[in-house]
């Protein structure tokens, strides 16, 4: 198991007028090299949860285990640096973290902080830039001259360059157009396969959950309320709606077809599954 949460509680600003519950008794496990989606409406505790994965937040009580690292309320900051390297975090709108004079140096910033030599860092930066599809001629430009989509790729390369084993993505496609979104998700799937990464994705895009995730965790009001495969999560459309979530587009489409007399053995979640189940149900003489 790559990641285990054992009865993790987190309290924001305890003993102050701003005290608030962030996580309440959350337990789950994530297998190595799997793709896990975390879903739930805004303010349900998704971002709080992922910040525990690399020690940016420490549990108020309970234990977080990430491979060889154990994180409890007592863990000191000194031990966190190697965890920061082990777990790469891509925050929402990661382009806001760019600061250096050239794209190359910004990408190499993480590796340099983690103690790689200058040559190693530069070679890691070039590799990461290649992995996210940035053309070489951009490497000596200022990151602030690039387009929004390119800036985001630079920021993601800046996380990948430190060679993390676990990649946490907090709504990485927010604000991108549909094509940019599809390209970016395909890129993450390829990175996961090439580098044997464990991927944690926080998202509001149910299609991405259906297309890519091995398992999904549903958060609501600081609690983990359901964990399972996408098929298990979306099996009860009424429950999904009650959680202020949506069905994947294909499942939604299939539901409308059911009212028109089509039948499905199981609710299709992806376009491919939908097409497979529709084959044979469509009248053959249709144009």
């Amino acid at each position: 198991m790559a990641i285990t949460f054992d009865h993790v509680n987190y309290m924001y600003q305890p003993n102050s007028p701003f005290e608030a519950v962030g996580l309440s008794d959350v337990s789950f496990t994530v297998p190595s090299e799997s793709f896990t989606a975390i879903i739930g409406h805004t303010g349900s505790g998704k971002s709080t949860l992922v910040q525990h994965l690399n020690g940016l937040l420490k549990p108020t009580s309970g234990t977080v285990t990430v491979d060889d690292f154990q994180l409890t309320a007592k863990t000191t900051n000194k031990h966190l640096k190697s965890l920061h390297q082990h777990v790469g975090m891509v925050f929402q709108f990661p382009e806001n973290q760019l600061f250096d004079q050239t794209v190359e140096r910004d990408i190499a910033f993480g590796p340099l902080n983690f103690g790689f030599t200058n040559e190693e860092a530069m070679s890691l930066a070039h590799q990461a830039a290649h992995d996210v599809g940035l053309p070489d001629e951009l490497l000596n430009r200022s990151p602030f001259e690039l387009s929004g989509g390119q800036m985001r790729r630079v920021a993601i390369a800046g996380v990948l360059a430190s060679q993390p084993r676990v990649l946490v993505l907090d709504e990485p496609t927010a604000g991108l157009d549909p094509r940019g979104r599809a390209e970016m998700m395909a890129m993450f799937a390829k990175l996961k396969a090439d580098q044997q990464l464990t991927v944690i994705l926080v998202t509001h895009q149910m299609d991405d959950v259906a297309d890519y995730a091995d398992q999904a965790l549903v958060m609501a009001h600081s609690n983990l309320i359901k964990a399972g495969t996408p098929a298990e999560i979306f099996a009860d459309p009424e429950w999904v709606k009650a959680q202020q979530l949506a069905l994947p587009t294909a499942a939604n489409f299939a539901q409308h077809l059911v009212t028109r007399g089509f039948e499905f053995d199981s609710l299709p979640l992806t376009a491919e599954q939908l097409a497979m189940q529709l084959r044979g149900q469509l009248p053959k003489e249709g144009r």
Binding site: L56, M89, G110, L112, F114, G158
Partner: peptide, 16 residues
Amino acid sequence: QTIMNAQRARGVEFNN
């Protein structure tokens, strides 16, 4: 706070 978190995740130590 957000930027600090992002840079800490990239290995910056603000308190060391």
